[in-house]
Amino acid sequence: MSFQAYLDNIQTKTGRTPADFRAMAQAKGFATADGIAPGIKATQITDWLKGEFDLGHGHAMAIFALLKGKTS
């Protein structure tokens, strides 16, 4: 599955766009405009995404990669 397919599936499941996830992660202090906030670990973000949005590990890691700056 391509990175874009992961993002598309996440949007279908949650109704949230990649930009929405960036904004929510910034509001929670997990990310900045430049990427992952200092000291934040992948597990903190994936636990949030799994708990709040019922995402699987692979989909949660796709959002983590998005927040780190991956674009394709």
Rank of each mutant, 00 (worst) to 15 (best):
M1I: 13
F3I: 07
F3Y: 15
Q4L: 14
Q4P: 00
A5M: 14
A5E: 14
A5C: 04
Y6R: 14
L7Y: 09
L7I: 06
D8C: 05
D8T: 15
N9L: 14
N9A: 15
N9Y: 13
I10H: 12
I10F: 12
Q11H: 11
Q11V: 10
Q11R: 15
T12C: 02
K13E: 08
T14R: 07
T14V: 12
G15Q: 11
R16P: 00
R16Q: 10
T17E: 05
T17N: 05
P18E: 05
P18S: 07
P18Y: 03
P18W: 05
A19V: 06
A19C: 00
A19K: 05
D20S: 14
D20A: 15
D20R: 11
D20Y: 11
D20W: 12
R22K: 13
R22M: 03
Q26G: 00
Q26W: 00
Q26H: 00
K28C: 05
G29L: 09
A31S: 06
A31Y: 02
T32I: 04
T32H: 02
T32W: 02
A33D: 07
A33I: 03
A33P: 00
A33T: 06
D34A: 11
D34Q: 11
D34W: 00
G35P: 14
G35K: 14
I36K: 03
I36F: 02
P38K: 14
P38S: 10
G39C: 08
G39K: 07
I40S: 02
A42K: 15
A42F: 03
T43Y: 01
Q44N: 10
Q44R: 12
Q44H: 09
I45S: 04
I45K: 04
T46D: 05
T46W: 06
T46M: 10
D47H: 13
D47W: 08
W48V: 03
L49Q: 02
K50F: 00
K50Q: 14
K50E: 09
G51F: 02
G51Q: 14
G51S: 15
E52W: 04
E52A: 12
F53L: 13
D54G: 04
G56C: 10
G56V: 13
H57L: 09
G58S: 12
G58D: 08
H59A: 15
H59K: 12
A60M: 07
A60Q: 05
A60W: 04
M61H: 10
I63V: 15
I63A: 01
I63M: 04
F64I: 05
F64G: 01
F64T: 02
L66Q: 05
L66Y: 12
L66G: 01
L66D: 02
L67T: 01
L67P: 03
K68V: 02
K68S: 08
G69Q: 02
G69I: 00
K70Y: 10
K70S: 08
K70T: 12
K70I: 10
K70M: 13
K70V: 14
T71W: 07
S72Y: 04
